[in-house]
Amino acid sequence: MSDYALDYGSPRGAALMGLRHAMGSPLIVLGASYVGFGSLVRSSGIPLPAGLLSTILGWALPGQVAAVELYGIGASLLAIMAAVALVNVRMMPMVIALMPFLRRPGVPRWQYVAAAHLIAVTSWVNSMQRCPQLPPEQRMPYMLGIGASLWSAMVFFTWVGYAITNELPASVSLGLVFLNPLYFMLVLVSDLRQRARALAIGLGAVAGPFTYMLSPEWGLLFCGFGAGTLAFAVDRLLAAREATS
């Protein structure tokens, strides 16, 4: 028996488990969201290769949607880059939070860069949940397994969405666009066991719309720093109280 709560047998086993976790509900629901994205690409007048490049290089749906929507309404390149930068600034704390669990002597540097590139909601939430419980040599394979599986599958679904756009009634594409926030919401809700995390998610969800109304540009950053720091502080306070009582 190993000392870890989770054990997939070997690095190879962990990579395959990542693939398996990608092939369940994420494949269906995220796939449908990317079909919606592909159809948005076409209706925004963007050629298919550019849409595929968006998924390959710009991986992480909310930023991809922001870039395509803003291009569709004729925004300038600078405005598009600024908007995507603000939507995707979360990548920095997401990478910082996961990396300490993945780091291990002897892992080639390209794997860290690949892991950083493949981080998106699904791969990150699953890895944050499982990697700390896995033996260290299985963590990077698990993360790359789930990340690369989803990434490559979603390139395909982007193409599907682009190809079938003209066949979709408006109400169906509306439903496809709504799938994405609902899916992200349920991914977060399914992992509320850790108190600090649950607090950060709850406070962030409440603060998000208000800080956005205060400032569409900087609202998300206020929300992340404000709600996240408050959640961290409350968790520490409760932990200290538990320790003394």
């Binding site: 979360r90 704390p93 944050m128 977060l188 995390r197 950060a200 406070l203 998300l220 996240g228």
Partner: peptide, 19 residues
Amino acid sequence: VLWVACVAFSLLAGLISRM
């Protein structure tokens, strides 16, 4: 690391609820 994770989770939750 826990603090940065809290910030990341709040950013994510705030983005989703804004969407």
